[in-house]
Amino acid sequence: MLRVLITRRWIVLTMVFVALTLVMCRLGLWQFHRYQQTKQNDHRISEAIHSPAVPLETLSRPGAQVPESNRYRTVTLTGKFDTAHQFVVRRRTNASGEIGFFLVTPMVTPDDKAVLVNRGWVAPDDDDGAAFPALPKTPQGTLTLTGRLQVDETSKLSGIRNVSGLPPRQYMLISSKEQASRLPEPLLGGYVELVATKPALPSADRAQRVAGPDDNGPSTTDAAIVGKGVHLPYAIQWWLFALMLPIGWIVLLRQDHKERQRKQDTTSVTTPPTQTAPTAQ
């Protein structure tokens, strides 16, 4: 068998098998690390969702960047909607997967600060999907909102490319940094996904609520839902493949050795013995 191993063919095959085994082990580790990250992220999101509601201004301030650790925290705020500066965000889907817009209306608090509020999904125009859509009525007067705190969207976070030159009051991302110069009041960092209002809004004044990460629907960002339950099976799958390669290498080596041995035995049987010349007397 050693003679088989030191042939050029088996040296190359062994190197290929070793390389493939190392690559599959590495892919398994990568998937396992993704599983750990997803599990930690799910735990953090669950803690944030089930934490008691707190006033928004305890977690955000004008010009601040909301840390990832505060994402999905339940917050409350009181104020009036600013219809003059509301806008829509393009290429967003509802629970049914239809593409439309998110309606974002700033809310001005009693201490003259502004907060971006994602009121939910609205359908596009039937004739022109890129046109500014028909919007639900904006409630007047003072409201108390409950919602989920979100970090400012970026192209990296959302997977949506930020495009300039869009029609008026249309944007690609929800970003307090992008909107701060448009509003007369100081704008708190991040934004709020609307969950409920007090008093409750009539149906005519409501957009379709954005699903949270604990709902059966798409959230604001796929990062909250993608990867659940898939990374660990993929890791185990790659490791099983890596385990099968050495076994396959041994099986092929034994088969090759047996085949060579069989050929040698056949050659020995079919080759007549060499005749020796008679010795002169």
Rank of each mutant, 00 (worst) to 15 (best):
L5S: 07
T7V: 05
L20G: 05
V23R: 06
Q36D: 15
Q36I: 14
T38C: 03
K39N: 15
K39I: 10
H43I: 12
I45T: 11
I45C: 01
I49D: 01
V54S: 12
P55N: 11
R61M: 13
P62Q: 10
N70I: 02
R71M: 06
Y72I: 01
Y72D: 08
F81M: 01
H85P: 07
H85Q: 11
F87W: 13
R90W: 01
E98W: 02
G100I: 04
G100H: 03
F101Q: 03
T105Y: 01
L116M: 09
L116S: 06
P124E: 07
D125K: 13
P139W: 00
G141E: 00
T142Q: 04
R148I: 10
D152E: 09
L157D: 14
R161I: 14
P168S: 06
Y171S: 15
M172H: 12
S175M: 04
S176C: 02
P186W: 05
L187P: 05
V192E: 15
V192H: 15
V192K: 14
P199V: 03
A204L: 13
Q208Y: 02
V210E: 07
G212I: 00
G212C: 02
G217C: 01
P218I: 00
T220G: 15
T220S: 11
A224F: 12
I225Q: 15
G229T: 11
Y234M: 06
A235D: 03
W238N: 03
M244Q: 07
D256R: 13
H257C: 07
P272Y: 02
